[in-house]
Design a protein around this nucleic acid. Structure first.
Lengths: 180, 180, 180, 180
DNA sequence: AATGAATGAGTCTTCATTCAT
DNA sequence: GATGAATGAAGACTCATTCAT
């Protein structure tokens, strides 16, 4: 709430998170479209128009948040990829992180995914790009694994995609355990 | 479009179905909130305000349709319950019907479930009541089964609920087979 | 104010005129941008959203009205062009009509011209097209006049444009008389 | 951008001019209402709220600038009035100055005049007062001329007003020459 | 019975202005 | 003296719903 001092980038982002999480809470309760900017502002304890200092539009709140989550996952995955371990081991670690993320989100993840489908195509594309970046890491690991000989020769793109999707029922159905 | 000729009840209901299914198609494509009454009217080939002769409000379209689907299931289940077969056999039959219903709907069912969560609480309660009626039939079967000695003693309410939910992954994950 | 009966095209247009002239009154007083749809609706004695049954957007009110005025002029000019008189005579008649129009509008015309410059380019282009149609009539007359030998050989496009513009000071400065 | 050093009055005014001219450029391009304070601040290379140290409100920018221009004219006219020359000679000089001013502004003057009409009545009145002061100088000259016998007896107010307006077409229509 | 014209409430968004630093 | 963060009021536009015919 300081007034004339430019926000540091860090502060900016911290506030964005606050707004995002306040929004998500509402989105989950009533849906994206059904939540008004007035409600979000109220929940975030700021004025209606101040929202627009942090997000250019309503859509942006959702897009930014989702992009950010995927990027977080990607960063963590990247760290694991760079470890000097056999590919299969690293893949296992990455999938475990992914699984933990899903397990922590669960319902949230599922619902938000639905909301994302309502965004305009451009926004969806932006999210897809992030998702692909993540997928490419997995793919890279699979390719390395194949080279190392620990995996059969496979279409790494397809397998990567399958891996990410196939794991979901594990989470949404029951007690999460973890094995690729 | 005939004017002045009173609709038979049957005709009334037939039109309601037409409107409902036209709506569902749109809801699936763009979401409940995002679909306007004008679009529904257009898709159903009737005037905007004629909609209100068949449904008191927009919400009502969704609620009525979902209620109706559950009631259909319930009627069929009721018929099975009344057969003179061992409880376990009847339960098996009921679950098979339920499964077939899910398999036929699949994505539709999942998406519509999401849309339902956007309705106001009163509407959701009305749907829940129908769901409970259905659940109670299952429960009744379980209780009978326990009496007959073919089931262990269990909390029939809990088991009924579990049965309905547990079956979903079967449908949504892969090739549907059927066994309770 | 009938409710369920589709408006005849004629009725539609009559209402559009009503709205347009109510709007113009306000536009002249306070400017286009400064006049709100609420004010227009109030002045036209209809509900805010009813406006949108007659004009798709605020801009449309201005564009439609201006286009319509030019088209009126064009129709009248067309009638004159088709008379069997020497070109010079017909040109004189057309210019007289134009002059009378300007004289009747005067301030209105000037101010509205300014407002038009604030519209988006697409709207401006639409108006320009109408203006060109009118200009082409004049041009045609000049060409005919040249053929008849009553005019010197000239660049008819240029002369047509000049004719339309040059006449303005006559109107805006003082007592209107009329001679090409 | 220096902080803490009190601005001299002169400096203050210099900055006001800078802001005014930066604004005018924008007003001409997109109109007064359509130009935001953020844009003005940006164009003037200062912070949004610093504007308010120089002008109490957005309107004030336009009003001050226009008032100032008229006052400049008035000051120059006043100087001429005080010369010891026959009234008719002095009037000629004043009108020449006025004409030069118009010729230099031209489109700018016309457009800005339109923008002024959008201001609230109070602001318009303030401008009118300045205009009257200027007009009164002309009037005074005419009265003196009448006394000197070089003019017919006339309603000096009316003539003064006519003089100021009549001269415009001269400027806006074509090659400026100068003769009352 | 069927319709589309009419509407007010509400949506996202912008902007002049204030204020704490 | 200078700033940008914060905001409420207002704007164009949409939509579920009503109502006269």
């Amino acid at each position: 709430m300081p007034k004339g001092i430019p926000l540091t980038d860090e502060e900016q982002i911290r506030r964005r998170y606050e707004i995002f999480w306040a929004s998500v809470k509402l989105f989950l309760k009533s849906g994206f479209q059904e939540t008004s900017m007035r409600e979000i502002a109220h929940a975030a304890n700021i004025g209606k128009s101040t929202l627009y200092d942090y997000f250019q539009a309503k859509d942006e709140i959702l897009v930014w948040g989702v992009e950010d989550e995927i990027m977080d996952l990607t960063v963590e995955a990247q760290k694991i990829v760079e470890l000097s371990l056999p590919a299969i081991e690293r893949l296992r670690k990455v999938m475990k992180t992914y699984l933990e993320f899903l397990a922590a989100s669960k319902e949230l993840y599922l619902k938000i995914s639905f909301e994302v489908q309502r965004l305009d195509l451009e926004s969806q594309k932006r999210i897809q790009v992030r998702r692909h970046t993540y997928q490419d890491l997995i793919r890279q690991l699979i390719d390395e694994g194949v080279k190392e000989g620990s995996f059969r020769k496979v279409d790494s793109l397809l397998v990567a995609r399958l891996l990410l999707i196939a794991i979901m029922p594990t989470v949404f159905t029951s007690r999460p355990t973890g094995a690729p």
